[in-house]
Computed example of a mutant assay.
Amino acid sequence: MYRHICKTSLLALTGAAFLTVAAVQAAERVELERDGLTHIAHLEMASGKSLEDGVILMLHGTMAHGRMEIMESLQGLMAERGYNSLSINLSLGIDAREGMVDCAIDHVHRHEDALAELDMWMGWLNEQGAGRVALMAHSRGGAQMAWYAAEHKPQGVEHAVLIAPATADHAATARAYEERYGAPLARVYEQAAELMRMGQPDTLIEDIGFLYCEGANASAAAVASYYADNPDFDTPALLPGMDMQVLVIAGSEDATVADLPERMAELKGEAHIQYGVVDGAEHFFRDFFADDVADLAAEFIGW
Rank of each mutant, 00 (worst) to 15 (best):
G131Y: 05
G269T: 01
D53S: 13
A143N: 00
G48C: 09
D234A: 09
M1A: 14
Q274K: 10
P236N: 13
Y181L: 02
D295H: 09
G182Q: 03
F289P: 00
L135D: 01
V21A: 12
H39W: 15
L238S: 06
E44S: 11
E266N: 04
E194H: 12
S50F: 09
H159G: 01
G123I: 13
F18S: 02
M78H: 02
L86K: 01
E214W: 08
R187V: 15
I105L: 11
A137T: 00
Q191E: 15
H170F: 01
A26F: 01
L19Y: 09
E282L: 07
K7D: 10
P236R: 11
E253N: 11
L43K: 12
N230T: 06
Q274L: 05
E44V: 10
A221K: 12
D119V: 03
A298C: 09
A79G: 04
L86P: 02
G182A: 04
A12G: 13
Y181V: 03
E69G: 12
F284K: 07
P240A: 05
I40E: 07
A186E: 14
L37Q: 11
V188A: 12
N217H: 15
F288N: 04
I208K: 07
A116G: 15
S225D: 12
G276T: 04
G209W: 13
D279A: 14
K7S: 11
L135Y: 05
A183T: 15
S225H: 08
A258E: 13
A150E: 09
D279P: 02
M198Q: 15
Y226V: 11
H109R: 05
L59K: 02
R34N: 15
W147A: 05
V257D: 00
V30C: 12
R110L: 02
C213T: 13
E44G: 13
V108R: 13
R110M: 06
N217I: 05
P261L: 03
W303S: 12
M63P: 00
A134N: 01
M244N: 11
E214P: 00
G93R: 07
T38N: 11
G142W: 02
R29M: 06
G276F: 03
A294S: 06
V24A: 06
E282D: 15
L239K: 14
V257T: 08
G54Y: 06
M68F: 03
D113K: 03
V157L: 11
Y226K: 10
I208R: 07
A104E: 15
T167R: 02
A23R: 14
G182D: 03
L118G: 01
E72R: 11
D287Y: 08
A137V: 01
S87I: 02
F288K: 10
A22K: 09
D102G: 07
D287T: 04
Y227R: 11
F300G: 08
Q200P: 07
T167N: 04
A114T: 09
Q128S: 10
A143L: 01
M1E: 14
L59T: 05
R140F: 00
M45H: 11
G276K: 03
R197F: 00
V223P: 12
L195K: 13
H39Q: 14
E179M: 09
I70V: 10
S91W: 06
A220S: 08
R110A: 06
G99P: 03
G241E: 10
S219H: 10
L13G: 00
Y83N: 02
